[in-house]
Amino acid sequence: MDDLQYRRSIYADPTCQDEDVLAAQQADPAKKEFAQELIQLDEKLKQAMKIPVPDDLCDKLLLRQSFASHQQEKRKSKVHLALAASVAIIAGLAVNYLQFSSSYTNLGDYALAHVYHEQSYFSNEDNTRVSLVSLNRKMTAFKGSFNGSMGELISADYCRFDGMKSLHLVFQGLTDTVTVFIVPKKEHLSFTDKFSDDKLQGESLGFEHANILVVADKNESLEKWQKNINDNISWSI
């Protein structure tokens, strides 16, 4: 290792422990002394570099951190609260929507579904009868009354017709029951004149205060029922 190279390595790192540097120091005491000199210089530099650290710096750092993390916590809990609130609102809306929204868009579809749903409760052979008086008492809610009997009335009850209070009448028919709904006029179900599926048929009659729907099996003459209703019903103001 030549002198220049040695000086370079010592200047770069006085404590250099490379083999050839150590060998050069062994061979030449002056080189060793030179290294010692620089180690001493380093020691001086180290002392000079150790500038005084402000006494309160440590406390300042801890204080600032405790403020910062406190702020962070507060922000976090606010975000959590906001999230929880949003979830709650959406859950509420969803429940509301599912419970109260109508899944049918027209009177006919709903009427058919309603009849199928309650098919098992009534049979054409039922012996119970409802008198005209009690039927008309129920009809007062719709500002209407029937002047005479339209047939053998098996059942007359208020029911929910897609969320609307309506009157559900079940008459004895030729082969199966005939269902008549008296439904208040509401806009969310569109009026359907005639409707049917493979078993049942139905027709709607629009009156001033209410729609009257007749649903029966295909053996029944809906025309006859409609005429019957038209002849018998009278509306109060």
């Binding site: 370079r8 390595s9 200047y11 770069a12 790192d13 006085p14 620089l38 210089l41 530099l45």
Partner: peptide
């Protein structure tokens, strides 16, 4: 290493 050398050299 070069920069360290120059730094010490200057000092």
């Amino acid at each position: 290493m070069t920069r360290l050398f120059r730094a010490r050299n200057q000092l």
